[in-house]
Design a binder for these strands. Structure first.
Length: 494
RNA sequence: GCGCCCGUAGCUCAGUGGUAGAGCACUCGGCUUUUAACCGAUUGGUCGUGCGUUCGACUCGCACCGGGCGCACCA
């Protein structure tokens, strides 16, 4: 897509712009008094018969998307839909008629006239006066052939949205999903509290952070990779139910499932455990789904996902066992390693039993979990912020929710024993020292907070982008992020 | 980071060593109750960028820029 100053098509539009200005017409006026949106009119006059004209005068406005018969018929789109303008020479002044030729597809127009339905059945406004509300200088892609170049669509998302209604629909649904989650949580007495994006140490998840710098303090800071540690401080501070829906940043690969900045919901509730949290998660996600999907079967790609409750819950070692026939529960580190290798799982970098089990699960089981499934009871090594399992040594009370072979949510009984938490973070620090760039840093203030006492609590994280992907049948995370991260082209463009 | 593929007009795409093409859009004219209106005539390009090979490069080679998909990392 060219934005060259000397583009011929742009020059043509500037010529029209100048003509308007020479006639004393402001191509960028300040307001327009609209009486109806397109969809409103389509509904009100749903039963108006073809060829019938009313005396009802309305004012509509929107973007011109198509024009036929030398501007006699104009397709005008607002955010609700389409209304046709009927611009017949008998109804317009000679000046207005002539000025129509200075309009282009893409311009915003406001028009007033009586409602009628054409013989062909198209609901129309018989225009008696109109006004150019914004002159568009860039030619739009052909609306019939479409706008399909993936790179151009992401770089110029506004054009994508103008041309491809499904893109707008996806973001409308995204908004409804997030709104539904907020309503659900607000109705359950949660408070939404914002926590810092800029942090001295980025903790709460295994991920590489972005770095930035504060000039006045002359110090390096990290962009947050999770909201967990601050939200838990709020539980210490006396809030019993808190959440944040916020952007987090992870300096890792980009793919159809990963964007460097993405939106995460994290919530924490005192006095609950992971068992209660699974019920809660089911209820919340179904509430979100029901605002944009009908029923409990949703189509993703060419397969259906069944959201009907209750969702399957299965211990990680049992899930592995039912798939491979091997009970890792009874194996020590060396035995587990051997068994994993036999299954074709690479264990070279894995220096404890828990990592091996987790790796076997992620490699062999995770991709097969299509319908919503809670995998519960994780190895302690992969869960440094989770409370020890009340019965099973070496395990923690954690679940992850998988849908369509991908992780969608992560929840647990929160570790609130400050001594245990200190030991776990010390292990992370050792890993970091050994070169693990994703290991968590020490956070002394967080430990101090736990020493003041955090009540037993349940905590959940949900990847909002991935949730929206499932509920809008989007195959790439970039389809649910309005302005996905892109490399800039050239020096002046971005 | 690795592998494979892609980049030609505003949009969608052909062309693969010998003068840069089509449809739609745009402009002009005709027509006028259309449903991608129609008819006619024009116009529009550093073929992603650079360096090579060649008498000659959109085409072949190398490098670079940007993108897609897969793998890796991860949510």
């Amino acid at each position: 897509m060219s934005t060259e100053e000397d583009s011929r098509l742009k020059a043509e539009r500037i010529r029209k712009l100048k003509s308007l200005q020479e006639e004393g017409v402001n191509p960028y006026p300040y307001f327009f008094s609209r009486t109806h949106k397109a969809a409103q009119l389509q509904k009100i006059y749903e039963h108006l018969e073809s060829g019938v004209e009313t005396q009802d005068v309305v004012s509509v406005c929107g973007r011109v998307m198509n024009e036929r018969n030398t501007w006699m018929f104009v397709d005008l789109f607002d955010d609700s839909g389409k209304i046709q303008l009927f611009c017949h020479k008998d109804n317009l002044s000679p000046e207005d008629l002539k000025r129509l030729r200075l309009c282009d597809k893409g311009d915003f127009i406001g028009a007033t006239g009586a409602i009628r339905r054409t013989k062909q059945g198209e609901l129309s406004v018989k225009v008696t006066s109109y006004e150019i509300l914004t002159k568009s200088l860039q030619p739009l892609p052909d609306s019939w052939q479409g706008f399909t170049d993936v790179e151009a669509r992401y770089r110029h998302r506004y054009v994508d949205m103008i041309i491809n209604p499904a893109v707008r629909e996806t973001f409308r649904k995204r908004s409804l999903i997030i709104k539904a989650i907020r309503e659900f949580l607000d109705n359950k007495d949660f408070f939404e509290i914002e926590t810092p994006v800029l942090q001295v140490e980025a903790g709460g998840a295994d991920a590489r952070p972005f770095t930035t710098h504060h000039n006045t303090l002359d110090m390096n800071l990290y962009l947050r990779i999770a909201t967990e540690l601050h939200l838990k401080r709020l539980i210490v501070g006396g809030f019993e139910r808190v959440y944040e829906i916020g952007r987090v940043f992870r300096n890792e690969g980009i793919s159809t499932r990963h964007n460097p900045e993405f939106t995460m919901l994290e919530l924490y509730a005192a006095y609950g455990d992971y068992n209660e949290l699974m019920n809660f998660t089911e209820e919340m996600l179904i509430a979100a789904a029901s605002t944009v999907c009908d029923g409990t079967d949703i189509l993703y790609g060419d397969k259906e996902i069944n959201l009907a409750r209750p969702w399957k819950r299965i211990r990680m070692v049992d899930a592995i066992s039912s798939m491979t026939g091997i009970d890792f529960n009874s194996l020590n580190y060396e035995e587990a390693k051997k068994a994993a290798n036999k299954l074709g799982v690479d264990t070279k970098e894995l220096n404890s039993r828990g990592y091996v089990i987790n790796e076997v699960f992620e490699t062999l089981v995770e991709p097969t979990l299509w319908h919503p499934t809670f995998i519960i009871d994780y190895p302690v090594e992969v869960s440094p912020l989770t409370k020890a399992h009340r019965e099973n040594p070496g395990e923690v009370e954690r679940f992850e929710l998988f849908v369509a072979g991908r992780e969608l949510a992560n929840g647990y009984s929160e570790l609130n024993d400050p001594e245990d938490q200190r030991r776990r973070l010390e292990q992370q620090v050792q890993k970091k020292a050994a070169g693990d760039l994703e290991a968590m840093p020490m956070d002394q203030d967080f430990l101090l907070a736990l020493e003041y006492g955090m009540p037993p609590a349940m905590g959940l994280g949900v990847g909002i982008d991935r949730l929206v992907m499932f509920l809008t049948n989007s195959q790439s995370i970039r389809d649910v992020i309005a302005f996905p991260t892109m490399r800039p082209i050239g020096e002046s463009s971005n």
